[in-house]
Design a protein around this nucleic acid. Structure first.
Lengths: 350, 350
DNA sequence: ACTAGCAGAGAAAGCGCTTACCGAAGCGGC
DNA sequence: GCCGCTTCGGTAAGCGCTTTCTCTGCTAGT
């Protein structure tokens, strides 16, 4: 029943004693300090550290140095492939730079998002990356901006993913353009009677896609009547229910565009459950190109985003390691990530 | 071009001054210290903190207290739905306890796993959770165990997910039993000529599933000849290629079991590309019940694991907050998470 | 009225690390 | 052969916080 008698981890002090050198020398030997250390000493310190199983206490190091090696990543839902792909990119890029990633989940709840940002500040992360933020129109928008500005004022960097959130750095996903291109391509395939399963109106990413799609249709003289726009939850079930609603309305459509793939999967499922074979009577398209959509039947037409790159890019933007040299000044950033329309079986030529 | 003159974040010192109290009082006012503080003072401190936008520096707190609020989670691949679901569970459970989660990705690389564990120790996490560890048979196994034991000796807790890794705490997934039950169910449906797309032999989870499945078949008098066991990568493409290999061998099978769903999706795809309609000529089954498999055609027969619960459970096991009261002693743990066989369209009765 | 006792604020000693700063050697130049 | 310079260990002062301990100022008991 007694707690296991646990010695505490070795400290730098222990290492110094073991190696028979001073604290300072030990410290200098272990982190590539600017000052040189006699190689023989260094060797001894390194060996002593090894023998003792010593690892630098990052916290202590952080307080001494006044700066950390932490990156904070906020996502709406880590189990959603959109976000987990982004996370993968961030984590990989971070580990290349010796940074450690802390992930928090906001569940698309603005209050929780704000709370989380506040809590995360306690970690004094170097960088804070927000994906799937609900900044728009929320009552919390202003507070969030203030919080983030204050974070930047105290030396942090913030990067947003997807939505332009000036004055903060942004990896801009061209949701508008991607959706417009998709609409143009689909119109080119002969689709005319279109419905959209849109996301919640306060998610900007969703709205941008809707707007872009509308614009693309308009270029082909197709109008999207308001009653053909159904707002639903940004989930598979949201797509499913939105589709049921659409079908119940009796509208006759030849194409359903869901503003993300997760919803589109729900659309396909709902159509099928209603006895409609997607891709024959009604075309279906999504957005994101998550892995699943290649594997469902019919494979889904969608817009590809290089999600992992996006995550990686966000980190680099914030740490100033952006790859394409050039104009990485303060206001760098909102240079959009290219997007690609992918036509698959779910939208055959009509 | 000049760096933005950034003031550093407010410190407790600033707050104390602003509130006109001592450092000690400020500290006590802000964290529910054991000692009481005059309510009027406390109020003043809290307000001052608010005014200054102060958040406790967790690092400094950690070094002063000698303990952190960090949980380290190692997964093989965060973009894999299996792991991202587990991660979601861990993160949610952690945030309920005020803990912060750091995620690292090992890419199923034993060397990298070891390095990562070492690096993560620098954070002095309270808990380290390993999912998809490649402990088995790897040359690094012993080193990893040593590293983890030493971590526990210095006050940390480690929890493994899935594979029993005594002496460490484990959320045991009954891979063996789940696969056996599945085999029994499938045999009951009339399948006889079975092939298995197995995982890499050094991943224990994969082997357990293979063994359990074999056992289940044996109970029905079905033997699984070695040449019907194809080892492949634990990915969709692994499943795809494994299936190609199987088909090329000319074996006549009526069922393919892939030891996880991600691979099973590849199996379905490969069969289809070979002109075989999965579920008619050949049945397909997977394991995990990731969301995707409900949505492909035919929907996949699989074994469900409550992945989010598993993650949550792992954290609770390690922090000692396990829910089912009872025997949460030191050696608690390897009480398996229940598993459920789910028969879907991919394995109709023959 | 006087002392015992306690509540609670503040001073100060760390926590494990980094990094000026100091001072002892070792070196070459004249 | 002496002096100034460089090189490089060590000493000690923090970093921002917690917590023990001291000490003041009450309340209360007789």
């Amino acid at each position: 029943m007694s707690a296991p008698a646990s010695k505490s981890p070795a400290t730098l002090h222990d290492v110094a004693r073991e190696a028979g050198v001073s604290l300072a020398t030990a410290s200098r030997s272990l982190n590539g300090s600017a000052r040189k250390v006699n190689e023989a000493y260094r060797q001894r310190v390194v060996e002593a550290a090894q023998r003792l199983g010593y690892t630098t206490n990052l916290f202590a190091q952080a307080v001494a140095k006044g700066s950390t090696t932490t990156v904070a990543l906020l996502v709406a839902d880590i189990a959603d492939p959109y976000f987990s792909s982004i996370a993968a990119g961030v984590i990989n890029a971070a580990s290349e730079e010796g940074l450690v990633v802390t992930i928090a989940v906001t569940g698309r709840n603005a209050q929780r998002e704000l709370d989380t940002v506040r809590a995360l500040r306690g970690q004094r992360p170097r960088v804070m990356i927000l994906a799937g933020s609900r900044t728009t129109g929320s009552a919390f928008e202003e507070q969030l901006r203030l919080e983030l500005s204050s974070f930047e004022d105290t030396g942090g960097k913030v990067a947003f993913i997807s939505q332009d959130a000036a004055p903060f750095a942004t990896v801009l996903l061209d949701n508008y353009g991607g959706a417009r291109d998709l609409a143009v391509a689909l119109a080119g395939l002969g689709y005319r009677d279109v419905a959209v399963i849109a996301g919640p109106p306060e998610i900007r990413t969703a709205e941008e896609r809707l707007d872009g799609f509308t614009e693309g249709l308009a270029e082909h003289g197709i109008t999207l009547p308001p009653e053909r726009i159904i707002h639903a939850d940004f989930t598979r079930d949201g797509g499913y229910r939105g589709t049921q609603e659409l079908l119940a309305s009796g509208a006759s459509v030849d194409l359903v565009f869901a503003v993300n793939d997760v919803m589109a999967v729900g659309v396909v499922s709902a159509l099928r459950d209603a006895g409609i074979v997607p891709g024959t009577g009604i075309g279906v398209a999504g957005y994101d190109d998550i892995p699943t959509v290649r594997d469902i039947t019919p494979a889904l037409t969608t817009v590809r985003i290089p999600l992992e790159d996006v995550g990686r890019r966000a980190l680099q933007l914030a740490t100033g390691t952006a790859y394409d040299g050039g104009t990485a000044g303060v206001g760098a950033g909102p240079e959009a990530i290219p997007t690609e329309t992918i036509i698959r079986g779910s939208t055959p030529r009509r």
